[in-house]
Design a protein around this nucleic acid. Structure first.
Lengths: 374, 374
DNA sequence: GTGAAAGCGCTAACAA
DNA sequence: TTGTTAGCGCTTTCAC
C-alpha cells in the first residue's frame, strides 16, 4: 500500500495539467478523446481514486446523505456492555450473544426497510448513504459528526431533541421520519397512522363484531400515539369503552425498560390478562413486533388465536406473514417512506431555502389469520 | 440556511486564531479552560459544525468505513424498472410495490444483520459507516466512488471481480465477506460453512435415520458451494447417494433468474418432486430464506413437514424462528461477521501494510421443528 | 498556551 | 481544448 496517488501523479504521468485530469473525470465530453484516454490510462495504471474529501472541500458538497437512527442495541439493553467492552478481542463465547435475543431482532426490521428505501433513492440520484446511530445517552457530537459529513440528514424519531435538529437544519436540510406532519419548521415524512388504526379497529368492530378491544402500547412515540388516537376514534364511534395495556418491555408511560426480557414481559402481561375477569375479544398492538411477542406468549399460555382472542399489529413486517397464525396488520410503505425522505432531502439540497415539506403516506389494511379472517 | 459557518467565523467571534479553535475541538486539554469555553460558546452560537471534507483532507483519512453490497433489488428483478424510472414523483400506486414481494423481503435479512455488526464495531471504535450497493451491471465507478470516501472497505460476495477489489486494496484495506479463507491477498472473514452443513446433515442421517436427502441450491456463491461440500461429505461418510435441486429463482448452475416469482418457482420445484418416484426424506437448503420458501410451497401442496419430509435451512434468520414449523438450521454469527470485518479494517487502517487476515467463525446447529425434533 | 503559515487534493474560474 | 491559479476549511508543525 504505497502512498495514495493524487491528481498530480496522474497529471504528471499523462503529461497534462491537473485541470485536464479533473475534467476528464467530471466532464469527459469537454476533453479531447485522445487526451482523455491518456489520462484514464495513467489513472488506471496508478490506481488513482479521486479523494472525496478534497472533492467535497472544493465543491462545497459531499454528495452524501446521512441517516441517523437510535441505538436500539443499547436501548434494549442487549449487548450494551459489550459495545463498551474491551477493544479488540472477539471471544468465541461472545459470538452468538448478539444473535441470541431473537425476539429483539424482530425490531430492527422496520429500520432496515426504511433504510433500504433511502438507499434506493440515494443510488438513483447519485448520492451515497452514511448511517449513524445515537441518542439514548450519546452526545450531540455523534450526530454532528455525521451532519458534518453529509449534504442532508434524515433522522428517526427518539434520537435527539428537536433543538439539536433545528440547529443542524440551519446548515443542511433535515427530514424527520415518522413524526406527525406538524409545523415544526423541519421536513417530515410519516404515514397515516391514525387513519390506518381507525380502519383496522373498525374492521374488528364491524366485521367481527368485537366489543371488548384492548390496545397495547399506547405511548412512547408519536407513531404509537397517533395509532392509539385512531383506535380511540373508532371505539368512540361505536360507543365502546377503551382499554389499554403496556407494550412488552415498556412501562405504562411507554418508556423503554432496558434490560427486561421481552418474551417474559409479554408472558407476564398475558397472565395478568388471563387472571382478569374476562379476556378481551381482541388485542390491538401498536406495532407488529409486539403483536408477534404477544402471539407467542398466548401460544405458550395455551390461548387459541383467533379462537379466543384476536390479535393485530401495525407495520407490515415480513415476519408477520410467516408467523402462524399470520398477522393481521396495517402495512405502512416503509420503503416508500425512506425514498420520500431521501427525495425531499435531495430536492432541498438542490434548492436551498425551499419551504419545509410535510408528507404523509397512505397505509393499507392487511387482513390475515390472527383477526379471524381467512 | 445562511452560509455555513467555518472555523474562521468561530475564531473571529471568539477572538482567537483558527489553530486554537481546531485545538479546542480535537485536543481540548491542550487549551486553557477559559479560552476553550470562549471557543465552544462561539461555536455553539454560530451553529458551527466542522467540515468532514476539510478535516479528511487535512488529516489524510476520513474516519469512515465502507460496506459494499450487491444490488439485491435489481438482481431479483423487483423494482428494477422503478429504480431507473422518472426522477421525482412517488406515485401512490407505486407505494407498496416494493413491499409487495414479501418472499423476496426475507433475503435482505442476512445483509442487515451483517451490516448491524459492522455498525456496532464502527461506532465502538469511532468510525462512521458508508453503505453502497452495486455489482450486477453497475460500473467500477460506483465502488470507486465509495472507496474514495473511506479508510477501509468491506465487500459482500458477488459484487465486483477480485481484480477490482485488489486494485482498491492497494490504497486502502479491503475485506471480503463470506468468501472462503483462501489466500487471495485480500482480507477475508467467513463462517464454517462446510463443517456446519456436515453436522446438520449428520443430524438428519444419524438422529433421524434419513437416507434420501436432497440438497437444494448447491451453487451460485462460495457459501453455497462450501455448504454443499459439507453435505456431500456427510452423505459420503454414511455411504449415501447425493441428490440436488435448484434453489428458487435460480437455474441448475446457481445463476439468478431475475424476474421469476420465487414462490411460484418453489411451487414448481415441489410439484416436480411430488411427481417423482418418491419424496425424499429430507430437503436440505443452502439458505434459510429458501427453506422458508419451500416450507410455504410444501404447505400449499398439502405435504406435512416434518411428517412426510424434513426441511432445513442455514443462516439463523429470525424469520426461521417465527415460521411454523420453526426452522431447523445452522446459525451463523452474522453480527459477529460484520464486527470482525470492521475490526480487521480498523486494525489495518491503524497498521498499514500488515499481512492479510483470513478469519473463519464457528457456527451453531439449531434444532427446531422442521427436522422432526421437538 | 496560542498564533502564523504551509499544505492536504481537488474544482472552477479565467486565460491562453 | 488545455493550463494557471486561487481557493475550499481544516490540521499541524514551528515559533513565539
Amino acid at each position: 500500500m504505497a502512498r495514495k496517488p493524487t491528481i498530480y501523479d496522474v497529471a504528471a504521468r499523462a503529461a497534462v495539467s491537473i485541470a485536464t485530469v479533473s475534467l476528464s473525470f467530471t466532464q469527459p465530453h469537454r476533453v479531447r478523446e485522445s487526451t482523455r484516454k491518456l489520462v484514464m490510462d495513467a489513472a488506471r495504471e496508478l490506481g488513482y481514486l479521486p479523494s472525496a474529501s478534497a472533492r467535497g472541500l472544493a465543491r462545497g458538497k459531499t454528495g452524501a446523505i446521512g441517516l441517523f437512527s437510535y441505538d436500539y442495541f443499547n436501548r434494549a439493553g442487549a449487548g450494551a456492555a459489550r459495545v463498551h467492552g474491551e477493544a479488540d478481542a472477539l471471544l468465541p463465547r461472545d459470538l452468538f450473544s448478539d444473535d441470541a435475543n431473537d425476539e429483539f431482532r424482530l425490531f430492527p426490521l422496520y429500520h432496515d426497510e426504511v433504510q433500504r428505501g433511502v438507499e434506493m433513492e440515494c443510488r438513483r440520484r447519485g448520492f451515497v448513504l452514511m448511517v449513524g446511530e445515537g441518542g439514548g445517552g450519546r452526545s450531540e457530537a455523534d450526530i454532528n459528526d455525521i451532519a458534518g459529513r453529509v449534504d442532508g440528514l434524515a433522522v428517526f424519531p427518539n434520537t435527539f431533541p428537536v433543538e439539536v435538529l433545528r440547529r443542524i437544519a440551519e446548515r443542511i436540510p433535515v427530514v424527520e421520519l415518522a413524526e406527525p406532519p406538524e409545523e415544526t419548521g423541519l421536513n417530515r415524512v410519516s404515514v397515516e397512522n391514525t387513519e390506518g388504526m381507525r380502519v383496522l379497529t373498525n374492521h374488528l368492530i364491524h366485521h367481527h363484531g368485537h366489543r371488548a378491544i384492548t390496545f397495547a402500547g399506547p405511548s412512547g412515540s408519536p407513531d404509537r400515539e397517533q395509532r392509539f388516537a385512531g383506535y380511540v376514534q373508532a371505539m368512540a364511534g361505536a360507543g365502546l369503552d377503551t382499554q389499554t395495556l403496556p407494550a412488552p418491555g415498556r412501562d405504562a408511560r411507554g418508556t423503554l425498560n432496558s434490560g427486561v426480557n421481552l418474551a417474559e414481559d409479554a408472558d407476564a402481561t398475558i397472565q395478568r390478562l388471563l387472571s382478569g375477569a374476562a379476556l378481551p375479544d381482541a388485542l390491538v398492538c401498536s406495532v407488529d413486533a409486539e403483536a408477534l411477542l404477544f402471539l407467542d406468549a398466548l401460544e405458550r399460555a395455551g390461548v387459541d388465536v383467533p379462537g379466543r382472542i384476536a390479535v393485530t399489529g401495525f407495520d407490515g413486517l415480513a415476519a408477520g406473514r410467516v408467523n402462524r397464525p399470520t398477522l393481521t396488520t396495517v402495512r405502512q410503505p416503509m420503503i416508500a417512506l425512506g425514498r420520500a425522505a431521501a427525495s425531499i432531502l435531495i430536492h432541498q439540497i438542490a434548492n436551498p431555502g425551499s419551504a419545509p415539506v410535510a408528507q404523509e403516506l397512505p397505509v393499507e389494511l392487511v387482513v390475515r389469520e390472527s383477526c379471524g379472517c381467512c
